Simulated scan of single mutants.
Amino acid sequence: MSNFPTGVTVITSALEDGEPQGLTCSSMTSVTLSPPTLLVCLDTNSVTMAVAARRGAFAVNLLHARAAGTARLFATRNVDRFAQVRWQRTQHSGLPWLVDDALAVAECELVDVQVVGTHAVLFGQVEAITLFDEAPLLYGRRTFASWPREEE
């Protein structure tokens, strides 16, 4: 699968009174437009997975082309990831938003979880989205890339 290019996201969640959790995820896709629903695949042993399940919500931070460093950071087991990036809680649901690194953030209510082997497929109904005009970060063949924006 490393030969297949994909967008790069950081999935985040936090309990209302807790520390933010997050991890890099390239297994994200749109499921349906009505209702708007995304799916993400997370390791069942990850803290982010446990917090998202307990909270019943998660955010999908779609990373822009200049955020490869953040993608690498959130792919590590570094416990102080959020101390190394600028983030804030979203207005709609108070989920962690990577302010300087996301071209979009989708706030999702967890509507279903299906466990398949070592991973859980989380289905999230999009409750709010914030979008910026940025080129997306891509990952394929173990390399980060992007494509230029179309000329108008």
Rank of each mutant, 00 (worst) to 15 (best):
V121H: 10
R142S: 14
V113G: 00
T44M: 09
N61P: 07
T90W: 04
R141H: 11
E127R: 15
F123L: 15
E16H: 07
T44C: 13
T32A: 14
S93A: 13
E16A: 15
S46M: 09
M28L: 15
P35W: 03
A59E: 05
L23F: 10
R72F: 02
E107M: 05
V105F: 03
F58N: 06
V47M: 10
L15Y: 01
V10H: 06
I129N: 01
L23G: 12
E107Y: 07
Q114K: 11
D133Y: 00
N45Y: 03
V99L: 12
A106H: 09
D80G: 06
N61L: 06
V99A: 13
L98A: 05
H119Q: 11
D112K: 11
G94A: 09
A104L: 04
A106L: 15
S13I: 04
A14V: 01
T37I: 09
N61D: 08
R72H: 09
Q91W: 00
L38S: 05
G18M: 10
M28G: 00
T48G: 08
R89F: 02
E19P: 08
G22V: 08
A59R: 06
A59K: 04
A104E: 03
V10L: 10
D101C: 01
A83S: 15
C41N: 11
L63A: 02
N45T: 14
L42W: 02
L110N: 05
V60L: 08
G94E: 10
F144L: 07
D133C: 01
W97T: 01
S13A: 14
C25W: 01
V79A: 14
F144P: 02
A52C: 07
L131Q: 12
Q114E: 08
R66E: 14
A57Q: 14
V31Q: 07
T76Q: 07
P35T: 08
R72A: 12
Q114F: 04
P96D: 09
L63V: 05
A52L: 09
P136D: 07
Q88H: 13
V116P: 00
Q114T: 11
A53V: 13
Q91N: 09
M28H: 04
D101G: 03
Q91G: 14
T32S: 15
Q21P: 00
H119R: 11
Q88V: 01
S46I: 08
L15I: 04
V60C: 12
R142G: 00
N78D: 15
